[in-house]
Write a protein that binds this DNA or RNA. Structure first.
Lengths: 388, 388
DNA sequence: GAGTTATGTTTATGTCCACAACATTTACTC
DNA sequence: GAGTAAATGTTGTGGACATAAACATAACTC
């Protein structure tokens, strides 16, 4: 009789490990995979054969050699295996078609003139998917990952509160699955940004990373602990913008006083630089090239507050890397030494040693890669269950 | 030929899972273990036989029955398997002999009249161990776990900074191993307290827990995430006492201004209650029974600050339980509603729902159980490597 | 005492992987 | 250009482990 149980579990774990390696590190030879996983070469032959059989991988002739030894075909992930990334924002809905090989095949941006409802976003999404029908037919779409600017009940696929979109307690995953026939996973946008930075960005390979992103609507955060995204009990973790760091009556978007988000705002910086919202992309250059005196004062004050928040994070989490995105990256570039001093003044010495504060890679594509990563997760966890 | 590799790994994982279940949940029958692990009954028979063979478990006759079905011998962890817990504090060194079955067999408290050096603590420890030689000969000591009131490089077994003991960059694990011949593991005391609360205390079974302990020397913290102790990059994580929450010139023990520890102190509470340090154990009752007006004001202010810090932790980590120990538990008992309101004012609504703020169990024994748990970890991870 | 229920035990079977020996293909050396 | 070293792929064998199924055992129920 069939012996399921453990043998299957072992196989699943090994297939998962191999596919993950290919996903994270890119193409490599079987021998390299065998060493990385600690399996035997003959075992790896069988595992790769399985992945090829499942339509998830393929072997190609090796490129240039230069080393002795028998040349080894290179195992690639099949680029037709894709996920759809969805990112609803205030001004536009962005959809991306992202391959398991990491390529962003297509980005579609659909601007709207007013903030959309959930129903409208769902409708636009399914319209775009309908338009892509021919393209998708030639591919293998494993799921949809959604980056939501707000707090998300990840397990249930429900948007609890996305203040800038005005969404509260809106089921999202279930209706989108209904419309698309695809599995849908949701997460907070900054959390996915953190994950993408950790996996593919400036914090690559760092197992303990904190990501802070500053945008028009506030400050979002995401935390990677031991290589995994920190979700907390319900998936709401990482809201570093809303921690109180000072005694101040200023309120943030959630109505909390004295928080990082209330004290460090892009709007104030833009105003001090004489820019308006529409020219926000010039903030970084304006700040670096002879900014007016008032802007200097604002930037210095904001850096001090940013330092306090980062210090709190360092004391609590003892991370290796703090990645700053959006206008927080501009603040960092403006005076990294000042930020370092402010952080040093509010951290315990052992905790802060070795911590690097770096700008995030921050290409908009990275967020799509993060959302797609969310959709790829079930496939990476159990490749064998994705038989065609 | 021998097939090591995977088969061994599977066995190791299964043995580990079974021993962990016994350690955490206490004695249970084989059938229960089989269901809990998802293994087959015949597999469990073999696994339990291995544990018995290794001298780690034993089967005893079932107690009262009352249910139909064949009576099942109950699998117990062998109580002779023990670890030694060590906790150096300012006023005394506490050693505990803790069984794998959870019983605290013996507690030895050695008071000193001045703060000891590392060498003195090591010397006292080995003296106590020498005195216990006969007792220990009948047992099986798997290691020593040390709870240090300060920041610890867990991997290296080095105390980086224990301000109240005046220790800086002191190797501890290596010399104690040298003296005792036993493996030694170090961790921060509050971190071990958090772990013990999560495993055996008031936060039992909660996978996301934050522990805050208030003592004479300040406020320590520990964080449990997804059932595991959060160490961070080097093991320094959890220093919640040192996060800045207000604009205040008050400095804490690390010289940082406006932190939880600088604003919420036992000394100030005691002074307002007209007590001195030596009567600290009466703080809780004094606070609950008609305290003088100034003490009320102090308690209210401290509760507000405590609320800000807890709120920051909730926003960042989205935990299920906040366990408060020491005088923080007294503050909680004094006015739980006020604390709730302060927390609510500084948290995002979704994150705070379902969070319970509870007093920690806080028996001094729990810390010893935590330190012993640290020492048991290698055994629980790979029981087969502990063949006699 | 017959039936029910829950558990322990025995035996046969299947899966997966490691290992070892051999095959293949390249680069390097003289 | 022949021989050697290095790296990898391939094949067959064996072993460890876990499952499944049938049977055995010991309580409870009526």
């Amino acid at each position: 009789m069939a012996s399921r149980g453990t043998a299957e579990e072992v196989r699943r774990a090994n297939l998962s490990a191999v596919l993950r390696l290919l996903y994270v590190n890119g193409p490599s030879s079987r021998a390299v995979l065998a060493r990385a996983t600690g399996r035997n070469r003959s075992t790896m032959a069988s595992l790769v054969a399985d992945l090829v059989e499942l339509g998830l991988a393929e072997e190609r002739d090796p490129a240039a050699l230069g080393v002795a030894g028998r040349p080894s075909p290179v195992v690639h992930v099949r680029p037709e295996v894709v996920a759809i990334a969805v990112n609803p924002e205030i001004d536009a809905l962005t959809l991306g078609l992202v391959g398991l090989d990491g390529t962003v095949r297509r980005v579609i941006r659909h601007a709207y003139d007013r903030i959309p409802s959930v129903a409208e976003v769902l409708s636009i999404t399914s319209a775009v998917l309908a338009g892509m029908e021919v393209e998708l037919a030639a591919l293998r779409v494993v799921g949809i990952g959604v980056a939501v600017p707000g707090q998300v009940q990840t397990a249930e696929g429900v948007v609890r509160n996305a203040p800038h979109l005005g969404w509260r307690d809106e089921p999202f995953a279930a209706p989108l699955t209904e419309l698309s026939g695809l599995p849908v996973a949701l997460a907070n946008d900054a959390a996915l940004g953190a994950w993408a930075e950790h996996r593919f960005g400036s914090g690559r390979g760092q197992d303990h990373l904190v990501y802070l992103n500053g945008g028009a609507s506030g400050i979002g955060g995401g935390v990677i602990i031991a290589g995994a995204l920190l979700g907390g009990t319900s998936g709401y973790a990482g809201e570093i913008g809303h921690i109180r760091i000072a005694s101040s009556p200023a309120l943030d978007s959630a109505g909390i006083a004295g928080t990082l988000e209330s004290l460090v705002t892009r709007a104030e910086l833009l105003a001090a630089l004489g820019l308006d919202e529409s020219s926000a992309d010039r903030l970084a250059t304006a700040l670096l090239h002879t900014p007016p005196q008032p802007a200097l004062a604002v930037a210095h004050r904001q850096l001090a507050h940013l330092g306090s928040a980062i210090a709190a994070v360092i004391n609590i989490l003892n991370p290796q890397v703090i990645a700053l995105g959006g206008f927080l990256a501009a603040l960092l570039a403006f005076d990294p030494d000042l930020l370092d001093r402010e952080v040093a003044a509010a951290t315990l010495a052992p905790s802060r040693e070795g911590v690097r504060i770096v700008p995030a890679d921050l290409s908009d594509r990275l967020l799509l890669v993060g959302a797609a990563g969310l959709a790829f997760e079930p496939l990476l966890r159990d490749p064998a269950s994705f038989a065609r």
